[in-house]
Design a protein around this nucleic acid. Structure first.
Lengths: 237, 237
DNA sequence: CACCTGTGCGACGAGATCGTAACAGAGAGG
DNA sequence: CCTCTCTGTTACGATCTCGTCGCACAGGTG
């Protein structure tokens, strides 16, 4: 029931009342809040502190919010930081404008502090989900690389090392077709596109071991194989 | 300026007008859209299809949106799918309620379709890695060249590589007549204008696979074929 | 209407491509 | 030495793809 602990959030507004109010609520949620009051400060602070999120008011003295946003997106250090825009302008035209530029959310004043906190939480939930662990997950398939084990639906699938390399390579980019040459090169180190049935054989063995989940490995004629994150039912039979 | 290719989105609303409208806009963005109209369907479809995002109307007959949402969050298969809530109730109390439960966004009716698309894009941007695909788009037809897949109205059309080359070539210059020689050269590499029925046969197969949309491929006697971006309705029969 | 030319369409066969079973060798372990 | 597992290869059959053919049909012309 709280935001990720120690989330650092940068709030930008020229009205100190607003920043204070937001700071109060966010710090109650366990966030570290940095408040600044003009455009130039934002850019400096964002690049230096690397907050997890920026709450940006559009109406700022000097450099306005749009300009600040564009600058944030051109600096490699701040490019990927989510931005929640805040504005007194509530016309659909303005909201669309903000979202179109790439804002992650747009909230109009006056707003409920509670709603702001919740919207911030929603954004952080999605953007911080990047897993630090050394695991590869696609749907019900979880690869624990450390132990070289594949879990399907919570149950271990007993794969050999070759099969493991094969499915890992495909799972790394699910729903993308990998050509035979690509796979032979990645798993076997073959440079030339040999015409052997080796790859096919291992694909079959994989499908066999996956049982009902075998349809996750798809064939695209003339193109190659791929890991299908959402196999269709009618393809399973 | 486009959503991720092949994003599968589940839209839930009891009013068919709404789902149709949203489907239209999203399929133009290259999304595969699945529309359902009651609560039970949502749970089944979500677990089976694993969409990248769910647009959920709160006012549903039978099981209401809140209950659907809770069920989505308790099923391991659907727990991590982002949800954008849609509702006619615009009170802060309702918005907060939705966000508090863990929705990723909350939009009130009436809404601008453009804003909905943008908000969906914002969520997807954060929840999945962005990949820029080279795609070819004409009207409701979206070609994902990397995966050799054609999406028509958000649904995949299963084409062979020859058919793919053919429609890509015509879509590259829609509403322009391509002579038989031009097409035979581009797709088959034939230099001489042979008098075989090869091209005709493949055109027919394409039209068959496109079903109702077959009228997008037009014939001009003695001149050649072309991709028609806006076929007349009376030609569809 | 008769005629001609160009296109639509079903069927067929050759070849490409993939799935599958069976086999043989390499290596580990007892 | 034997056994077992893993691996790569081969052979064969099933399936899919694609070009061609023959004929039907439509549009234009005289």
């Amino acid at each position: 029931m709280c935001l990720n602990r120690m989330s650092r959030i940068l709030i930008v507004d020229d009205e100190k009342d607003i920043t204070d109010l937001v700071t109060l609520h966010l710090s109650q949620e366990g966030c570290e809040v940095i408040a600044v009051h003009n455009g130039l400060e934002v850019l400096e602070t964002a690049a230096k502190e690397r907050p997890q999120l920026i709450v940006l008011d559009i109406m700022l003295p000097g450099m306005d919010g749009w300009q600040v946003f564009r600058n944030l997106r051109t600096d490699a250090r701040t490019r990927s930081i989510p931005v929640l825009m805040l504005s007194a302008r509530s016309q659909p035209r303005d909201r669309i404008n903000g979202l179109e530029m790439g804002a992650d959310d747009y909230l109009t004043k006056p707003f409920s502090p509670r709603e702001l906190v919740l919207r911030i939480r929603a954004i952080l939930r999605r953007s911080q989900k990047v897993s630090i662990s050394d695991e590869l997950r696609v749907g019900d398939f979880v690869v624990d690389r450390q132990n070289m084990v594949l879990l399907v639906d919570g149950k271990v699938a007993d794969l050999t090392s070759t099969e493991m390399k094969l499915i890992c390579f495909m799972m790394a980019n699910p729903d993308v077709i990998h050509s035979r040459g690509e796979l032979l090169n990645a798993v076997w180190g073959y440079a030339d596109d040999t015409h052997s049935r080796t790859l096919d054989t291992h694909v079959k063995r994989l499908r066999d071991k996956l049982g009902d989940h075998g349809s996750h490995i798809g064939t695209v004629r003339k193109q190659g194989y791929l890991f299908v994150s959402n196999p269709r039912k009618d393809a399973a039979k």
